[in-house]
């Protein structure tokens, strides 16, 4: 739903910060998936729960997770990148999702340097859409344990 929103241009200073070295140790991220809620007309469809974990190895982010309790079948699992946590951004990749009201999610995407900077600021989210909530049913922003 936010595809038509502003495109975020990352501050140049940030970009230079993150020459994520290929030899760095793997970094673990995780997030619970919250219902997107929004307002009283959407809240009863946007239900469910889930859990995502992700591993960054070099520039590859490998994502696995589970979801359950949707009120309609899942249709899509997307990775979005905004500048900081809580700001949904454009879709940068799709994950495998079986459909149905519950199931597993998996997949991996390769991030650019700018996207890695966003990841470190909590800007990377996983969003699950469903038939009744085609523009976001569950979402969560990846964080390290330290964040």
């Amino acid at each position: 739903m936010f595809r038509q929103r502003t495109h975020y241009v990352l501050i140049a200073g940030l970009v230079s910060l993150l020459a994520a070295p290929a030899f760095a140790a793997d970094v673990q991220y995780s997030t619970p998936l919250d219902p997107v809620a929004f307002d009283n007309s959407t809240v009863k469809n946007n239900v469910g729960t889930g859990e995502i974990t992700a591993t960054l190895s070099g520039k590859t982010l490998t994502v696995t997770g589970k979801y359950s309790g949707l009120s309609s079948a899942a249709t899509k699992a997307e990775v979005k990148i905004g500048p900081v946590m809580g700001v949904p951004g454009p879709v940068v990749g799709e994950l495998k999702i079986p459909g149905g009201m519950s199931g597993d999610i998996s997949g991996s995407i390769t991030l650019t340097s700018a996207q890695l900077a966003s990841l470190n600021k909590g800007g990377v989210s996983v969003v699950i859409n469903s038939e009744k909530a085609p523009n976001g049913n569950l979402w969560g922003w990846l964080q390290t344990a330290a964040q």
């Binding site: 307002d39 946590m85 909590g122």
Partner: peptide
């Protein structure tokens, strides 16, 4: 107009 959501990182 506002659309509400849980604050990330708060476990609702």
């Amino acid at each position: 107009t506002q659309l509400f959501f849980f604050m990330p990182g708060t476990n609702q």
